[in-house]
Design a protein around this nucleic acid. Structure first.
Lengths: 243, 243
DNA sequence: AGACCACTTTGGTCGTACCAATCTGGACCC
DNA sequence: GGGTCCAGATTGGTACGACCAAAGTGGTCT
């Protein structure tokens, strides 16, 4: 009986401060491989001079990059670490670097996301209350009305998965999904050409999930999601290849 | 033909700077729920006064907390956000807050981790080269020698999963695992009483995985991992309950 | 009661200064 | 030549003070 205010969540550019700018530039340089792991980053004073900023701003920037586990700050110098050992939070920048997202990375993301969705479904469905089941069915029925418009289906799908996530009640997965969401989804939605799923596939997805929800069969819901994500991956790969 | 220097990777307390201290304290206060979401954090100047630190140090601290998506810094004041919307990186602090880790959270972690392990296995096994298969089998045989000593098996198990991860070659999962590792594993290893898996269970795990690797049957390896993590969860839950 | 405006507070940035840890290079000794 | 050792330069850690623009505050006026 609350929230749902601030409906559209208009995202003002999250206040690009000087330190964030610097952090972004330096982060991207590291991700681009312009420094070898173990190598020293230019000193704070040098960076400050280069960006025409104060050392304070640079320090804030480096402090952020350190949180990404991309560098190791120590007296004597900040050293670059392996990108493979970094935090999830580098995924977004990693994706957004080329003019077109790296196809492999996108596929890996979708693969991973599908596994998390499956996981959520299998954990949520068995513990459904009657009210929750009805809620989910309602959402699915609503989704069944927009099968040909990806634009209007996507947010409903997202909401559906969020509801499932709330029921599964696994904070770890929730936080992982947050990060993937934050890192990935927004960039994915700007894809051109947008992959277009066939209405039949979507109908199959919704119907499959509905059956699973009705019967309390988590594996059925998960399977429907599997199929959906598989075709999604194929389409996205195709879209990226032709771009 | 390189690396493998700095064998033991002695981790000196990662240089607890003033800003990190402040960040930790404030972060924990937020995680502890001492502020309501939407509420304003004390001003940088107030925090500086409270900690007897400079504003610069406080700003670096807040900048780090902002990266955790726990606060939203804006002119006018920093506002607290929902913990549920935060980054994975809050998991560690969240676990380490009570004298004993929260049992539910630990279980959720193990559940999630098992899914990621299963995922990695199913993706890695089908694309094994001969050399990789031999490598894995060798590792498993080595593991079969330490079945009764959890202390010596654990690192081998970890190495095995890392190898699988390298073969699966999914950067997204890799980064997620990094974070879970960074957030969780170290704290888990300090558990008392340590959960003790029965040697028979471990033998079964290793044997099951070996068979799967040999036959190129990813699902078999995944199943063996499933069983293992299930009993692990039961034991950990028991250990935490009796603590 | 609502609109409007001046004042205060708050974050964003800069500059300078000092300390301690680290690194660097050259003198020195074997 | 190769290793050792020490002083000076470099680097990060921290502090204080100052100014600006944006956001919040409260009181006045209508």
């Amino acid at each position: 009986m609350s929230s749902m205010n601030s409906i559209s969540q208009i995202k003002i550019p999250p206040l690009m401060t000087r330190s964030h700018e610097i952090a972004n530039v330096v982060r991207d340089e590291i991700l681009r491989g312009q420094f070898r792991p173990g190598e020293r980053l230019p000193s704070e004073r040098d960076l400050a001079a280069r960006f025409g900023a104060s050392r304070g701003a640079v320090r804030e920037a480096l402090s952020q990059i350190e949180q990404l586990r991309l560098i190791d700050i120590q007296p004597g110098g900040a050293r670059i670490k392996e990108v493979n050992d970094a935090s999830i939070a580098v995924l977004g920048p990693l994706l957004g670097m080329g003019s077109i997202p790296d196809a492999d990375l996108v596929d890996q993301f979708l693969d991973t996301f599908s596994v998390l969705a499956r996981f959520t479904a299998t954990r949520a469905i068995p513990k459904l209350s009657d009210a929750q089941r009805i809620d989910l069915l309602t959402q699915l029925d609503s989704m069944a009305d927009d099968l040909d418009s990806v634009e209007s289906l996507q947010p409903k799908m997202r909401a559906f998965l969020m509801t499932l996530g709330g029921i599964a009640d696994n904070l770890v997965v929730r936080l992982i999904s947050n990060d993937l969401q934050a890192q990935f989804v927004e960039r994915m939605l700007q894809l051109h050409p947008r992959p277009s799923l066939k209405p039949e596939s979507l109908r199959e997805l919704v119907a499959g999930m509905r059956l699973g929800v009705q019967n309390g069969d988590g594996e059925a819901v998960a399977s429907a999601l599997d199929v959906h994500f598989l075709s999604m991956r194929a389409l996205v790969a195709q879209a990226l290849a032709s771009a």
